[in-house]
Nucleic acid binder design. Structure first.
Lengths: 187, 187
DNA sequence: GGTAGATATCTTGATGTCGAGATACTTGGG
DNA sequence: CCCAAGTATCTCGACATCAAGATATCTACC
């Protein structure tokens, strides 16, 4: 008999009811529904990838709340922290920001415009390439990024309390294997 | 000495170079940058959650490509398959669709309008509640959903080829623990 | 050094999403 | 029976994003 992931989950519940309780989630219900409606298909991939998508969606919402405490939108955080991470003098080209934030060039132009309007970054001409621009964090932008990062980490640490340190390491490793192919090819 | 996730990764590379090669990803670089710039902070949570967000982002793009082969947008797929999963007669209220797709009511109204325009769903009055509406899949909508699902599963199975079946099960289980709290409370 | 093709950024128009509020109906207490 | 509060859906305006194309500049090769 072949065990599916769902079976494994139930096994945990049945055999060790007091020490290992695994809660159902929306994806369990989704997969069960597909197995009922389309028993001819192998929907195993959804067990992983639908959870990734849904978790990301929930995280987006939680992050929006966390950043609001610091008066920042998620997209503002993404850009400011990319610059912050670059280290002094906290500047990157729009093109470098694109690859880090996974948005299109039009979007980035718009973001830089708005952040400039708020005084969090400023545009400087690239001295080595007259097509180019350097986006630099202002002092205010740097402070905001630092504060928001600390807030984010506190929130996320709380979410991860569900898992032991070892489990977090395992999870990070498995996710890395899935993400790496995307991050290491041109596509 | 305490090992961080990054150390564990490097350990793999150093000790078993031929059998276990772990590729770096963008999050490794991101975490390394934070450790250099903010050595005072514990950025461990990013190892998991930043990977979830970035992977989801990549998946969105890949899914967009996969669905385009069937002439569907990702949002259309989400709605059509929610109805398909409901089983015959393939109908749900807009409210039920909201909770499954994690969008707001205004968005769902708009989606139903456009799907109706394309002839993939139709609105019926709810016989038990005159405020209510039932959204029902047309035959064409059902066929499209079935075709697109098969295509999606093929694509996703390919992405997951990086992992063994056992690893996929582990990953699904760990993700479930993180998602379940979101899915099982009102929030 | 001149030119074709690559590259960096910005512009534009269309579109999907959100949030807040409006509307219509239902429910439960008095 | 009536009314207040709750619920289901829709409307509307603001806004962020994207894709495609425009512009300016660089690079490499002849």
């Amino acid at each position: 008999m072949r065990l599916t992931f769902l079976d494994v989950k139930r096994l945990h519940i049945d055999t060790t009811p007091d020490t290992l309780i695994v809660m159902e989630d929306e994806v369990d219900r989704l997969v069960a529904a597909w197995r009922r409606e389309r028993p001819d298909l192998d929907v195993e991939p959804l067990e992983v990838l639908s959870r990734v998508s849904r978790l990301a969606r929930h995280l987006d919402r939680a992050r929006r709340t966390a950043f609001a405490e610091h008066g920042l939108e998620p997209w503002e955080f993404d850009v400011l922290t990319a610059l912050r991470r670059a280290g002094s003098p906290y500047q990157l080209s729009p093109g470098q920001l694109l690859t880090q934030t996974l948005v299109t060039s039009g979007t980035m132009t718009n973001r830089i415009d708005r952040l400039t309007g708020k005084g969090l970054v400023k545009r400087l001409p690239d001295p080595d390439d007259r097509r180019g621009v350097l986006v630099r964090l202002t002092d205010d932008g740097r402070d905001r990024a630092d504060q928001a990062l600390a807030g984010l980490l506190a929130h996320e640490r709380a979410l991860l309390a569900e898992l032991s340190a070892g489990q977090q390491g395992e999870l990070a490793g498995l996710l890395r294997q899935l993400v790496a192919p995307f991050d290491n090819v041109p596509g």
